[in-house]
Design a protein around this nucleic acid. Structure first.
Length: 115
DNA sequence: TCCATGACTCCGC
DNA sequence: CGCGGAGCCATGG
């Protein structure tokens, strides 16, 4: 990782996740070039504005990033929790017992997309 | 430069 | 399975 900072790379990766698929924070961190920086991915997404846009005003589909367990990030948050779940369901992502079956919805990024 | 922060994970029990 | 604790490390002050 060099020129572009970690956050920008995170946003680029998240933008590549197709609707109907999800990625874990750790997956995004690895794709962004820092496998152990899962927490920083969350921090990067927290820096987005209310509309899910980055500093440049570009939209970032933050709802497609969830925990590796399949749980959405905002368990306990009565506002953002249900919001994220609804946004995902609108894209076709299904839930079983309050969690996404990662086996079926976890996106497998193409190596060529990471350049 | 040092230090606190935190939308996370892995591991042991 | 669930829980608690210890790593991890990019930011910003």
């Amino acid at each position: 990782m060099t020129i572009r900072n970690f956050r920008e790379r995170v946003y680029d990766v998240v933008r590549r996740i197709p609707a109907g698929s999800v990625l874990a924070y750790g997956d995004v961190a690895a794709a962004a070039g820092s496998p152990r920086a899962a927490r920083q991915v969350g921090y990067a997404l927290a820096a987005l504005d209310e509309g899910g846009r980055d500093k440049e005003g570009l939209d970032v589909p933050w709802q497609r990033v969830i925990r590796t367990t399949g749980h959405i990030a905002f368990q306990g948050d009565v506002v953002r929790g249900p919001l994220q779940r609804r946004m995902l369901e609108d894209e076709g992502v299904e839930f079983e017992d309050d969690r996404v079956p990662m086996k079926r919805f976890r996106w497998q990024p193409d190596l060529e997309d990471l350049g």
